[in-house]
Design a binder for these strands. Structure first.
Length: 313
RNA sequence: CGCGGGGUAGAGCAGUUGGUAGCUCGUCGGGCUCAUAACCCGGAGGUCGUGUGGUUCAAGUCCCACCCCCGCAA
C-alpha cells in the first residue's frame, strides 16, 4: 500500500483520519479529499472544516472538488494512482471512475450495522427508534448508496442514556480503530465479501425540522428517544406558551411522577421540572431557550422561562 | 456586508418615560422540625461586556465604536 486517499468531511470522519495518519503516514503517501466549505454560518463567514483543518495542519495534500461528477476530474484522480480510497462522511457520491480505479477499491466506514440505516443520519435514527444496539460497518463501496458488500462489522450496545453526542464519539473512535486494523487486511485481501440482505435494508434520512419537533401527545418513552437521538445537536424542539419562542430540550429523563395534566403541561417545577406527555411524563434536565445558551431546567425556572401550569407545544 | 436575540452578584433573569440596582436559586450564619431537597429570620456577594468615548446636573437606562455569546437561515 503506497498511496492512501482519505475522503471525508463531517466530524465523524476526523477520528478515522487521525488514526490513519498516526499509523500509516510514515510509510504511505496520504492524500485527503474533503468538501470545500461554502460561505456559511453566522455572518456568512467561511470556517474551515475539521477534516480540512487537520489535513492542513499536518501538511497533507488536500483536494476539494465541488463535485466528482465531471469526467475532467478523472484525469486528476487517476494521476494520483491511489491504491485504496477510504471514505467516511464525505458528502459526495463517488462516480465510477473513482470506484474502479484503486487496486484495493474504495471502502466506506459507516455508522450502522448495514443493511440497516443506510444513508445520512444512522446515529440519530437508531436512537430515535430506540434500538438497543448499533455498530460500525466497513464496506466495499459500489454505485448505490451504502449498498456495497460488507467486509467487517462490529456491534456496540446502546445504554438507555446514550445520546447522539456520546454515541457519535464512540462510533467515530470505533470506526478509527477498525479502519486501522482493516487496511493491512485489505492489502492481503483477507476479508470475505458479504452481500447485504436487501429485505432488511432501512434508510436513515437526513434529520429535518419535522424530526426535531416534539409532539407532547406521544408517549414519554418515544419523546425521550427523540430527545436523546437529537442531543446535543440539532436537538429536539418545542415552543413555550409565554412567548412562542423555540425551546430546545437537550436532555431529559423519564419521570415516574404520577402527576396528571394535559400533554405539554408543565406539571411540576420543583424540585424537578416535569412535563406531561401523552403517556407518562418527562423530567427536563438541560434545555436551551431561543437566543440563549444551554442551561439546566432549574435555571430556566429561576429565570421564568418555564412556569408551572404553562404549556409547551 | 444574510436575518435576529443577548452580555446586570456564583447561576438564570427583571430593571418602566435616565436620578447611584432588584427577583428566583445557590452560598454563609441562625431558627423551626424526628427529619428534610420543606419552611422562617439574617448576612456576604455587582467598577451593570470593553472604551482615561459622546450627550446630561445625573446613564444599567440615550448616542458612537469595539469585543464576546447564542438562535435562525445556509
Amino acid at each position: 500500500m503506497k498511496h492512501l486517499v482519505f475522503m471525508g468531511t463531517g466530524a465523524f470522519a476526523l477520528a478515522p483520519l487521525q488514526a490513519i495518519y498516526e499509523h500509516f503516514a510514515d510509510r504511505c503517501r496520504l492524500t485527503v479529499f474533503t468538501k470545500a466549505q461554502k460561505p456559511a454560518g453566522r455572518g456568512m463567514k467561511c470556517k474551515p472544516g475539521c477534516v480540512e483543518a487537520f489535513a492542513r495542519e499536518k501538511e497533507l495534500e488536500v483536494f476539494q472538488p465541488q463535485t466528482l461528477k465531471e469526467e475532467s476530474f478523472g484525469e486528476t484522480f487517476r494521476a494520483l494512482r491511489a491504491d485504496l480510497v477510504i471514505v467516511a462522511s464525505y458528502g459526495l457520491l463517488l462516480p465510477g471512475y473513482v470506484l474502479d480505479e484503486p487496486e484495493f477499491g474504495c471502502v466506506n466506514i459507516h455508522a450502522s450495522l448495514l443493511p440497516e440505516y443506510r444513508g445520512a443520519a444512522p446515529i440519530n435514527r437508531c436512537l430515535i427508534d430506540g434500538k438497543e444496539k448499533t455498530g460500525i460497518t466497513i464496506m466495499q463501496m459500489d454505485r448505490g448508496l451504502d449498498t456495497g458488500d460488507v467486509l467487517w462489522q462490529k456491534e456496540l450496545s446502546l445504554a438507555p442514556e446514550e445520546t447522539a453526542g456520546t454515541l457519535f464519539e464512540k462510533l467515530a473512535s470505533l470506526g478509527a480503530e477498525m479502519i486501522v486494523e482493516a487496511i493491512p487486511l485489505l492489502e492481503k485481501r483477507a476479508f470475505s465479501l458479504q452481500k447485504q440482505e436487501e429485505a432488511r435494508a432501512t434508510y436513515a434520512a437526513k434529520i429535518t425540522a419535522t424530526d426535531q419537533k416534539i409532539d407532547w401527545s406521544r408517549p414519554a418513552a418515544e419523546i425521550f428517544n427523540q430527545i436523546r437521538g437529537l442531543s446535543p445537536l440539532p436537538s429536539a424542539i418545542c415552543r413555550t406558551q409565554k412567548d412562542g419562542k423555540r425551546f430546545k430540550i437537550i436532555e431529559a429523563r423519564l419521570s415516574d411522577e404520577g402527576a396528571q395534566g394535559a400533554p405539554g403541561e408543565i406539571v411540576s417545577v420543583k424540585p424537578r421540572v416535569v412535563v406531561q406527555c401523552g403517556e407518562g411524563a418527562l423530567e427536563l434536565l438541560l434545555v436551551q431557550p431561543e437566543g440563549k445558551g444551554k442551561m439546566t431546567a432549574a435555571d430556566a425556572v429561576n429565570g421564568r422561562k418555564l412556569v408551572l401550569g404553562e404549556y409547551l407545544s
